[in-house]
């Protein structure tokens, strides 16, 4: 299956990855090539096969409900692109 402009724009919105107008065609082509590879899966008979999310049949281990973390916001925000008064900053969000 091959992707068109609409699909590329849709994926671009979902992933918040910008695709410039003049690059849309190229991106669509490359993604379509990959989808062709995916199409090889169609032929396989997967009836009665359970999906496998993890390589091992392990179950979730649980953590005791104790506070183990300390306040490190200064250290962590030292590498933030923009922070003020202990808050991370982004351009104004209108709600």
């Amino acid at each position: 299956m091959s992707l068109g402009k609409t699909e590329v724009e849709y994926i671009s919105r979902l992933t918040q990855i910008e695709v410039q107008e003049d690059a849309v065609e190229g991106v669509a082509q490359k993604l379509s090539n990959i989808l062709e590879l995916f199409a090889q899966m169609e032929a396989a008979d997967t009836q009665d096969i359970l999906p496998m999310a993890h390589p091992l049949d392990a179950v979730q281990r649980l953590r005791a409900d104790v506070v183990t973390e300390i306040d490190q916001h200064e250290k962590l925000q030292a590498i933030a692109p923009a922070a003020a008064e202990a808050h991370y900053l982004v351009p104004q969000v209108i709600e």
Binding site: R63, D65, V66, V67, T68, E69, D71, Q72, H73, L76, Q77, E85, A86, H87, Y88
Partner: peptide, 24 residues
Amino acid sequence: TTKSKIFSGASTAYGAAPNSQACP
């Protein structure tokens, strides 16, 4: 009502200083 968060050991106490209970 837990002491720590669902996936980390940071405190859930209400009203703490901003980001003081946000661990990596």
